[in-house]
């Protein structure tokens, strides 16, 4: 379970690149490539083990014309998904 104070880091075995405003992530073992749109790419870029979920939400609000509630919902949904897929993990405090 994550909350706004949770810090999340990227799985270092997941190759990825930001390409223009979008992103490509690769699940090598599954042989799958994941394409993220601009908002997904922004959230992924901000996942660094240092930013809290709230920092990420504010990063999205600063980058796009979106209110904080919507950004929070998007960020929580996206982060839950990447955690579930093993693309990222929660940092132990």
């Amino acid at each position: 379970m994550i909350d706004l104070e949770t810090r999340v880091y990227k799985n270092e075995n997941v190759p990825w690149r930001i390409i223009e405003d979008e992103a490509i992530l690769v699940e090598v073992k599954k042989g799958e490539v994941i394409h993220l749109n601009d908002v997904g790419a922004k959230i992924w870029d901000l996942i660094d083990g240092e930013n809290t979920v709230q920092d990420i939400v504010l990063g999205v609000v600063g980058a796009y014309e979106v209110d904080e509630d919507t950004a929070r919902q998007d960020a929580l949904c996206f982060i839950s998904e990447v955690l579930e897929k093993g693309l990222a993990a929660v940092r132990d405090e």
Partner: peptide, 8 residues
Amino acid sequence: VSPASAAL
């Protein structure tokens, strides 16, 4: 197509 789609 976008560069990211092409990369995929």
